[in-house]
Simulated scan of single mutants.
Amino acid sequence: MNSLVSPAQERTARPVLLDDFVERAKGCLSKASFDYIDACAMDGLTQRSNRRDFDRLAFVPLSMRDVASPDLSTHYFGRSYDVPIGISPMAFHRLAHPDGELATAGAALAAGTPMVVSPMSSRSLEEIAQHAQGARLWLHVYIFRNRDLIRSLIARAEDAGFDAITVGLGCPALGKRPANQRNDFRLPDGIDAANFSKDSLGQELAWKDAELDAAATWSDVEALCRQTSLPVIGKGILNPLDVPFALDAGLSGLMVSNHGGRQLDGAVSSIRALPDIVAAVNGRVPVFLDSGVRRGTDVLKALSLGASAVFVGRPALWALSVDGQKGVSDMLSILTDELRLAMQLVGCANLNDARALAADILCWT
């Protein structure tokens, strides 16, 4: 390391956009690990549409409004959050950094943002909660064929003090990801799914046997909701025809997501699907958005169209690989600062302003 680097050079070296973390991550990770994190389904049509459609949504800014101190706070599930940003569920954070989910959770705690923990985390639910006491942790689960496995994970999350559960919708099978197949990806030695070493009874579990249930229906979601007093959010909804079934099943919130383009290639982008889901929900539960968020302007667009908060996935792992917990904290700070600036330049003093003015400040190009 060059100890003679000037402060000006150091500042220049710091990431200033979320995309900067991507380029640096390429130098921090093996090709196989980078490709695993970056992988998309098939030809990447949906992954590209997530970005393309954010870019096709343009602002029509308002002038001369008092935006000296924009209020970024949002409210859902009986709690207030200073910023409307969270971290999406992603497997095996230790691929990016030895501290793995402990570092990501530490950054989320410092920012006061929720972090959704994957069932395939490389640190256990208990480790994460103990390390980042007070963090607003959510557990992500799928409808596994082994229903006892779901019950065990939810019980452990409750005991560890998690705030909410998310359940994957639209995931009856794993999408085809050519990059992983070409690399014949295998987890490096020493990295595994930490939650599957033993269950609450001390019995050995094999995470590779955690099969998705392609026969699952809304009745299975309803059964899951009955298993916990925590809010359950359905992650992966894209079609407004599903909204009545989701609400009847007892879901407390919905997350519009195409899983970052990792499942069905050719699926509609999340930002395109968002307005129709918000209209169908009609205020009955909070709606969130995941997939494709890379800029503060993206966050403002989603919030204006009715999202209570947005969640970011890959950028958190890129940042984690670059500088551990500090990298994730920097990533969240960049996104938050960009959101604040976007609100000022568009003319929105708070998020309620943005939602009320959506028809006047946004247009598709």
Score class of each variant (00 low, 15 high):
162 F>K: 01
165 I>D: 09
174 L>M: 14
175 G>S: 00
175 G>D: 03
177 R>Q: 14
178 P>G: 12
178 P>C: 11
178 P>D: 14
180 N>T: 07
182 R>F: 11
185 F>C: 00
191 I>M: 09
195 N>P: 09
198 K>G: 10
199 D>C: 04
202 G>M: 08
202 G>V: 10
204 E>A: 14
204 E>S: 14
204 E>P: 08
205 L>I: 14
207 W>F: 15
207 W>K: 01
208 K>H: 13
211 E>I: 12
212 L>I: 12
212 L>D: 07
213 D>W: 07
215 A>C: 13
218 W>D: 09
219 S>P: 05
221 V>K: 03
222 E>W: 06
230 L>M: 15
231 P>G: 08
232 V>H: 02
232 V>N: 04
233 I>G: 01
235 K>H: 13
237 I>D: 00
241 L>Q: 12
243 V>C: 01
246 A>T: 07
252 S>W: 04
253 G>T: 07
255 M>T: 10
258 N>H: 14
258 N>T: 11
261 G>H: 04
264 L>H: 08
264 L>P: 00
265 D>Y: 02
265 D>L: 00
266 G>R: 09
267 A>F: 00
267 A>Y: 05
268 V>Y: 03
272 R>T: 11
273 A>N: 01
274 L>N: 02
275 P>Y: 03
277 I>W: 02
278 V>R: 05
281 V>R: 03
282 N>V: 03
282 N>I: 01
282 N>Q: 11
283 G>T: 02
283 G>W: 03
283 G>Q: 06
288 F>W: 13
289 L>H: 08
290 D>Q: 07
290 D>Y: 09
291 S>V: 06
291 S>I: 10
297 T>Q: 07
298 D>C: 07
